[in-house]
Write a protein that binds this DNA or RNA. Sequence first.
DNA 1: AACAATTACGGAATCCGTAAAAATT
DNA 2: AATTTTTACGGATTCCGTAATTGTT
Lengths: 291, 291
Amino acid sequence: MLDNYLLQELVTFAQTGTLAKTAATLNVTQPTVTRGMQKLETDLGVQLFDRQPNRIRLTATGKLAAREAAKLLQANHDTAIRIQNFDRNQRVLKVAATLPGPMIVLQSLKDQLPANLQLAPVASLPEPVESLRNHAYTLVFTNHPLTATDITNQLIGTENLAIHLNKFMYQANQSTVTFADLAGLSFVVPVDIGPWRAIIQDNIPDAKFFYQKEREALAEITKFSDFPYFATNVSPFDPTLPLEATVNDNRRLLPISDAAAHMSIYANYLTAATSRVTPVITTLRASWPET
Amino acid sequence: MLDNYLLQELVTFAQTGTLAKTAATLNVTQPTVTRGMQKLETDLGVQLFDRQPNRIRLTATGKLAAREAAKLLQANHDTAIRIQNFDRNQRVLKVAATLPGPMIVLQSLKDQLPANLQLAPVASLPEPVESLRNHAYTLVFTNHPLTATDITNQLIGTENLAIHLNKFMYQANQSTVTFADLAGLSFVVPVDIGPWRAIIQDNIPDAKFFYQKEREALAEITKFSDFPYFATNVSPFDPTLPLEATVNDNRRLLPISDAAAHMSIYANYLTAATSRVTPVITTLRASWPET
DNA sequence: AACAATTACGGAATCCGTAAAAATT
DNA sequence: AATTTTTACGGATTCCGTAATTGTT
């Protein structure tokens, strides 16, 4: 077995180039590193270094060993994190999504859901499959089902894009609009909207988008300007109110009719976690606003 | 970092179920295992065991941890082997194949090839891609190119199947035969012929095959019987002799005309090893018998 | 002279085995 | 009574740091 602390020294040596710098980086003394690399060579039964009185370099085998060692250390670290995540998720059920819609609905249903539910604040999850396998999250919502043999998907419902337009704009004079109708306009948009970002950028010709990180600042901007802004059937969402009640300014809310403005929302989870996520999915589907 | 010897104890415990058997399996004493598992728990900051005075069991987290630990240990071991293989293959160039043909040709060219060349005796290599990545072999011959981004393929030539038939059989009365002509016959065949085995089994109707492990015993059987037996343009192969010179019995050698009786032979190697394998491939192609 | 690697020696930390205790089947 | 786990204590191994040596730039 290759000891981890020796692998760590080898990886650091490959980065720094000298035993002295390796020792300084790892907060040990040079003799420790000298002995360590000698031991690693005897453990492997392989020459990892070309030695000259004042210089030491990796052989071809040594360079390979350093790359492989880095992988092993990474795997070891990832495993520790994975075990700790799994243990935590035995007690709390962490939920994330690649787009904000499902999280907003869940937030509004908080009191109907298990108390150990934890909603991730981030909307755009970079590696949804890995975050399930690492047990970083137990339940992940996406707009496309995650395809893997160890993952189960369930369709939750659809999210439909709409636009708040100043009621005196000529485009507002209809019951629905298309992306083409919005050509050339400028919009204020939250940054973390996941795949919606690409959709509006790719489908609205010659548009300008002002991305705003703070949701409150965005509300301010829309309140004191005439910029159009987007909404969906779930955002903002309060199941006790009709959708129009959220329109409190001099804008009209118009659904967007293009096919690209409608998204299917899927729940994804490790098949092994089925029994734990089912109640959450059931209540979410029961309250999903199909408008 | 998770120490390997603790992971080993955890894996063994998951297999044996008690600390006592774990200790016996690993040739240590029980207190060692007790302390080890306690240390692993504190290192991870996670409860791996449910403890009762006389019984100790894995928690759900513990079971996961044991599975993950087994993977880490396997990866560690594989890495050590890989490094040792790489180091060895800096000096010798090991060659293997999934079928015997190319190895036979290489054997006959031995004196024209680098002295550090080592030919594997086995004809059917179970995991050719992995054996390249593990540096178990530097050069692998197959009848289909191995497709991977880190692997390069080169077409060497074709291997064509033929059959030695008793000259008084009615099928021998033609210049070539088809698989259908051989229907119902019985054949003596070496066991390690790789993909040829499936080809003759799938293409010759109602045939019987007697598989023989020892090549010498097979030669004896064919010598003192009238069983038909297979050959190819490379097997047996001596570049200084015409193919007919190998026919020393009362049989005729007939090529098989079916498309399935012709195989393309490919050389596969890690792209990083190109310069090392090129001379071997060059000489092999130069002497490949295109009959 | 300064730097890099190695060796020698003593101390510190860790790990292990023996012995004993506690509790269950 | 036999097993299993845990704790306590002492020994042994391993690992590390300081100091000194060698050789190069």
